[in-house]
């Protein structure tokens, strides 16, 4: 049985005149025990999708189920079995770390000690601050506390909506390590993120843009779909370089990428042509080498097609 199954979900906002499709005909499924990532920028429809799956919103049409329970009919069953961490920090800022945990444990009809094993690894990191009010924690600590609260009743499926947004790189890395640990405990996890580089840690990802799924596959599978040759180039005058590359007709796309510009070429034959063109242009210290595309390159290509 799939942990999450979504079939032809359509969801729109606004009045008749200006109807905006938050989700247009989305279908996918998450296997039990899988760490599944929904990768997409703000406004892609990630939050709407999460709210439909956590029974908070009703879709216009389509069907969805969590662990076999229908999100509309079996609302109560689902609410007992899932853990949810909304995008905004949503714990009680004026309660201490411990009070928040005990409160949510009781709300979910369990106790802090009952499932302590599950959250132990995460909790020990915030334990030194257990008497501090949640509002006074740092961003990373807040995320950890929110995760503990979402896990306190040992949910079967965990929904994490943008858990790493606005969190610094160190905390983000720690957070993903924690998710790997939870996966080992057999919890199915559906997580969304706007950070493309986080896709690689998921078992499978769905790239979501403007309410449409661009691609669903394992990260390696998504990358394998990127067929064009990709070249990273660098010069002293980066802006002039980019403008020059964009004028070349064998270049499909070019964009800044870290310290380089990534150049998507139409075919293998274009690689030497690019080399020639750039050497002819006087842009100073040109270096170029072929690179493997990553999820972000794929996302850009899929977005433009």
């Amino acid at each position: 049985m799939a942990a999450v199954s979504v079939e032809n979900i359509i969801m729109s906002y606004g009045k008749k005149k200006q109807k905006i499709n938050a989700l247009s005909d989305i279908s996918f499924s998450v296997a039990a025990g899988e760490l599944f990532g929904i990768i997409g920028p703000d406004g892609a429809g990630k939050t709407s999708l999460f709210r439909i799956l956590t029974t908070l919103l009703l879709a216009d049409s389509g069907q969805a189920s969590v662990n076999g329970f229908d999100v509309v009919k079996d609302m109560k069953q689902i609410r007992k079995r899932i853990g949810y961490m909304p995008g905004r920090f949503s714990l009680y800022q004026d309660l201490t770390v411990e009070e928040n945990l005990h409160f949510f444990a009781t709300i979910f009809q369990t106790s802090f000690s009952e499932n302590y094993n599950l959250i132990k690894d995460i909790y020990v990191q915030i334990e030194p601050f257990k008497n501090r009010r949640a509002g006074q924690l740092s961003g990373g600590m807040k995320q950890k506390l929110a995760l503990c609260c979402a896990l306190i009743h040992r949910p079967e499926v965990l929904f994490l909506d943008e858990p790493t947004t606005g969190v610094d790189a160190v905390s983000r890395k720690e957070f993903w390590d924690m998710l790997q640990g939870l996966k080992k405990q057999g919890i199915s996890i559906l997580v969304s993120t706007p950070y493309m580089d986080e896709a690689n840690i998921c078992d499978r990802v769905a790239l979501l843009q403007k309410g449409k799924i661009l691609s669903i596959d394992s990260p390696a599978g998504v990358i394998a779909h990127f067929k064009n040759p990709l070249v990273a180039v660098k010069a002293k005058q980066m802006l002039a370089l980019l403008e020059k590359i964009k004028t070349l007709d064998f270049v499909q796309d070019a964009y800044p990428f870290g310290e380089f510009h990534h150049v998507v070429l139409q075919n293998e034959k274009a690689v030497p042509s690019l080399e020639q063109e750039l050497e002819a242009a006087d842009l100073g210290h040109i270096t170029m080498h072929k690179v493997q595309a990553n999820i972000e390159d794929c996302f850009i290509q899929l977005m433009k097609n």
Partner: peptide, 24 residues
């Protein structure tokens, strides 16, 4: 201050191109 948080990768790059131009 964190001008590109949550923005899609294509727009993020268009944004940075604007930054490059401003600097130029």
């Amino acid at each position: 201050d964190e001008p590109t948080g949550g923005v899609d990768p294509v727009t993020r790059r268009e944004f940075w191109t604007m930054i490059y131009k401003a600097a130029a």
